[in-house]
Design a protein around this nucleic acid. Structure first.
Length: 909
DNA sequence: AGTGTCTGCCCC
DNA sequence: ATTCTGC
DNA sequence: GCAGAATGGGCAGACACT
């Protein structure tokens, strides 16, 4: 086989011949005239057209051998032939003959036909040396015509909006391809100077184009600007106020290309072969050996080996997709490992918060979880120790850590007010924008766009902003602070400030994926990260510890809350039992151990999940989301001091008086109430007495019980002496689905909402909703109701009527009285159908909200029903959800107000 | 002072 | 809380 | 199976408005 080496260019030592070397050599083949290829070699082999282009781009003297395509020649003892490569005008492949052996070097090439490059040709060769810029399966380009149509549509729309379309493509090759693509679309291209110059040379070489103009800054209106990518963010373009920029490149298929390259649109028109064409080319050439270079060389070689070919990468530069346009740009492009790689010549000032927002956009743009994690971890890795905890917290949609007691007291009203004042937009326009999106973040982006004077916003400044918002008293002061900031933020930054304020990032990434990104970024185990985050309740601090490899310093300790174990809902005793059988079956297969046969059944309590920490001299109570609620239950704290042991107990606080369980409704009355510690037993505590029902023991006398089976935990719990106002949850063992069902029926008779069913051998798994605890609930009753109004949803449901107000009939007057609203329970398809129906059955249209003909009957389920002033019926449902669309019923057969009242009375409310 | 509006990692 | 959806 | 998004009602508290 012909020997091949690689050293900043392909080298054939037996022939002493270089192929596309970066540095000046005595004798080399130059495949095409891109500037990175045309070093001042002494003697070159080129195609005739490349020779012409090269003379313009690299003046000076050298020995040239301009060869026609398809003719075999011998030059300086090298036996070779050039073939068209289809990459750009004049681009060539080089076929080298050595005895019986041949080697085909592709240079840059593509197979799909272009309008300004020759048709590619190929020959069989034993060795194929090929470029693999797009050697990954995700780079499959759509049909060229489709891309061109999109590109033309982009230009037309932009001009219609009286803005200037700017298309970015290399001045040699890509720009001319774009020019050809625009032919016949009725558009007038205007060429950047460097593009103009090259295009003229093309014309001298016999290529013809549609009519075009040279760039003239006073005449851009209605034209399509074609510029090299380096012009993005350049002073020239900055002078054009209203423009939309599109990148024309194979990298456009990356879902986050728009954010990475800071453009408004991106179209995948490439002069390189895509993944499928790379594979196809290998099949056409039928080589015995393949050597890959550029782009994803290693990955592509590995794919070929998986197909049984002898294939190896000549370089290991696998990061090329980060350097836009590879070699041509690589020299000018800053090296970067971040997801925010930018085109060269970016404006000098950089905003850290904009980086953060752009990473968020990139994460939101890809649906793939692993890609999200990769983007985030790359970004986190590049942050300072000061920034890291702040930004990690932002990515969970919070301004402050979970365990941080600070709250912002900033909601929609304050945000909208601040936006409106910052932009001085009139009410009607503002509400039109807000109404169109149903998403505060998007509204912020839209209204801020072009109405602010952005300047850089650092991560630390953003932390100060949130701190100040927290400190400010009153919605007016908060709105004022926000307004000041909005007016100096870019729209994207404003959008992300709003996203954090509303706690809704909506980029398909929440705490779980942030944990994974931290694990990946700092090369620590995911378990350790989760463990530390659970213990600290602070993802930012967790990230910082991870970066310092200090995660082990977080430990389970008394007086620091841990996440609680959750139960998976199941609709029937059979379903629950089957789950246990499945789990036991799997376990038996693996370990040979026997099925436990017995599960623990407890009442499900309708109160507040709570965690009691009792140390030698203090007591704390935490809610299920780790908030400290000690102050709300002073009498429980007082009683808890009587425990003999130090312990952490898991349980439920329920309203309880005179030996009788009260409802959640009763408990709620004292929940938000502020307690006056000087008057412990006077107010709220006396009003609504509570008890703490303990059902699990997590820690006792210095020992963690998390990895002790439930059976043993319950045994220990059984030995505790309980102070007044502390109860122990009863456990009933069950050995079959029928037994569970029996216990469930009993619970029902006691008007209990359901059961908890637990694997007696399971460990306590904080924060997980696993296959060890289940909850069994069933509706007491359902109501048949009729929809009287429909509203547009939010986020991705912004265009559908997904939110329904429904009514029952008052028998005495015949009136339809609203009793609740629901969205939950319908599939997207059903929502789409109902949207269509309601649009055609609208009585009055108030924009986002419309009253509709009462002709759709829903069966709704609910957790409880109680008196309320919210709806005209005087009743309200807790956790309403749609069970079914009752197409078999009409408005005459819905349930009555009288029946609903009966249900409310029967359930004790 | 009385009423109305908004908010809450609200609680479920 | 609940439910559906995409991975 | 998991994680995420998009939805429900109700209370007390804090402030704004009149």
């Amino acid at each position: 086989m012909i020997e091949v080496r690689y050293e900043r260019g392909v080298y054939l030592p037996q022939q002493d011949f270089w192929l596309d070397p970066w540095d000046a050599k005595s004798f080399a083949f130059v495949s095409h005239a891109h500037s990175d290829h045309i070093a001042p070699h002494q003697e070159v082999i080129v195609s005739e057209r490349t020779a012409r282009l090269m003379r313009v781009r690299l003046p000076g003297s050298r020995i040239e051998h301009p060869l026609p395509f398809g003719e075999r020649r011998s030059i300086r003892g090298v036996d070779l032939m050039l073939l068209p490569a289809g990459h750009i005008f004049g681009s060539a492949q080089c076929l080298v003959f050595a005895g019986q052996e041949t080697l085909l070097y592709t240079g840059d090439f593509k197979l799909r036909p272009g309008k300004s490059a020759e048709e590619p040709e190929w020959r069989h060769a034993e060795t194929l040396v090929m470029e693999t810029t797009f050697g990954r399966p995700r780079y499959r380009f759509p049909p060229t015509k489709e891309v061109i149509d999109q590109m033309v549509a982009f230009c037309v729309e932009t001009i219609d909006a009286t803005e200037v379309p700017v298309l970015l493509g290399y001045s040699l090759g890509k720009a001319q391809e774009i020019l050809c693509a625009l032919e016949g679309a009725g558009l007038t291209p205007m060429l950047h100077g460097s593009v103009y110059q090259i295009t003229r040379i093309y014309e001298q070489l016999g290529q013809s184009f549609c009519k075009y103009m040279r760039y003239n800054r006073n005449d851009v209106a209605g034209k399509v600007l074609i510029c090299p990518p380096s012009a993005n963010r350049s002073p020239m373009l900055e002078k054009i106020p209203r423009k939309r920029i599109a990148l024309i490149s194979g990298w456009a298929v990356d879902p986050h290309a728009v954010y990475r390259y800071q453009v408004d649109a991106a179209f995948p028109l490439s002069d390189h072969a895509d993944y499928d064409d790379l594979l196809r080319y290998v099949e056409l050439v039928q080589p015995r050996r393949v050597l890959t270079l550029h782009g994803f060389a290693a990955a592509f070689a590995s794919d070929l080996r998986a197909r049984g070919l002898d294939a190896w990468a000549l370089t290991e530069e696998n990061q090329m997709e980060l350097h836009f346009g590879r070699r041509e740009m690589a020299r000018k492009c800053l090296p970067t490992n971040s997801a925010t790689a930018r085109l060269p010549n970016e404006s000098a000032q950089q905003s850290e918060f904009l980086d953060f927002a752009n990473v968020g956009e990139a994460i939101g743009a890809t649906p793939a979880k692993l890609e999200k994690i990769r983007l985030l971890s790359d970004y986190l890795r590049g942050l300072t120790g000061e920034q890291l905890p702040i930004v990690a917290t932002y990515f969970t949609g919070r301004a402050f850590a979970q365990s941080d007691p600070r709250i912002l007291q900033v909601g929609w009203a304050v945000i909208f007010r601040a936006l409106q004042e910052a932009t001085r937009i009139g009410d009607s326009e503002f509400h039109r924008s807000a109404g169109r999106h149903g998403d505060a973040g998007k509204t912020a982006f839209e209204v801020l766009d072009g109405r602010t004077a952005p300047h850089p916003f650092s991560v630390m400044e953003s932390a100060e902003l949130f701190q100040n918002l927290h400190r400010a008293r009153g919605s007016i002061a908060k709105a004022q602070l926000l307004r000041q900031r909005f007016s100096v933020l870019s729209p994207r930054e404003g959008q992300y400030v709003v996203k954090i304020l509303t706690g809704d990032l909506r980029i398909g990434l929440r705490e779980g994926l942030v944990e994974e990104a931290i694990s990946k970024a700092f090369d620590v185990s995911l378990d350790e990260v989760k463990q530390a985050n659970m213990l600290l309740g602070d993802i930012g601090r967790t990230a910082l510890l991870a970066s310092q490899k200090e995660l082990h310093s977080a430990e389970l300790s008394l007086l620091r809350p841990i996440k609680c174990m959750l139960a998976t809902p199941e609709p029937s005793a059979d379903a629950v039992w089957n789950r246990f059988m499945e789990a036991a079956g799997i376990e038996r297969d693996q370990s040979g151990s026997s099925i436990p046969g017995t599960v623990y059944v407890e009442d499900k309590f309708d109160g507040i999940r709570a965690q009691l920490h009792r140390s030698r001299d203090s007591v704390e109570i935490f809610s299920r989301d780790l908030r400290r609620i000690t102050g709300q239950f002073p009498e429980l704290v007082e009683q808890a001091r009587r425990f003999d042991q130090e312990l952490i107990a898991d349980g439920e606080i329920i309203a309880f008086d005179k030996g009788r369980r009260l409802t959640f409704f009763d408990l709620q009355k004292r929940l938000g109430r502020k307690d006056d510690t000087s008057d412990l037993f006077a107010g709220a505590a006396a009003d609504v007495p509570v008890v703490f029902v303990i059902f699990d023991l997590l820690w006792m006398n210095g020992r963690s019980l998390l990895k002790t089976p439930l059976r043993e935990r319950r045994e220990q719990l059984g030995t505790l002496v309980l102070p007044p106002q502390f109860h122990r949850a009863n456990v009933t063992p069950a050995r079959s689905a029928a037994e569970i069902e029996q216990i469930f029926q009993d619970a029902r008779r006691r008007l209990n909402e359901g059961l908890m069913i637990k694997d007696s051998e399971s460990f306590y798994l904080p924060g997980t909703r696993g296959m060890f605890w289940f909850k069994l609930k069933r509706e007491l009753a359902t109501l048949d109701v009729v929809v009287v109004a429909a509203e547009l949803g939010h986020g991705k449901r912004n265009d559908v009527l997904s939110d329904y107000t429904f009514a029952v009939r008052d028998e005495t007057t015949g009136e339809l009285l609203p009793i609740g609203k629901a969205y939950s329970g319908l599939t997207d398809v059903e929502i789409a159908e109902l949207t269509e129906h309601f649009k055609q059955n609208t009585i009055t249209d108030h924009g986002r909200y419309r009253r509709v003909q009462p002709n759709v009957v829903l069966e709704v389920a609910f957790n409880s029903i109680q008196p309320s002033t919210r709806h005209a019926s005087g009743l309200a449902l807790r956790f309403p959800r749609i069970k079914a669309i009752r197409r078999d019923k009409n408005v005459d057969s819905i349930d009555t107000l009288q029946y609903a009242r009966e249900l409310a009375i029967r359930s004790g409310n």
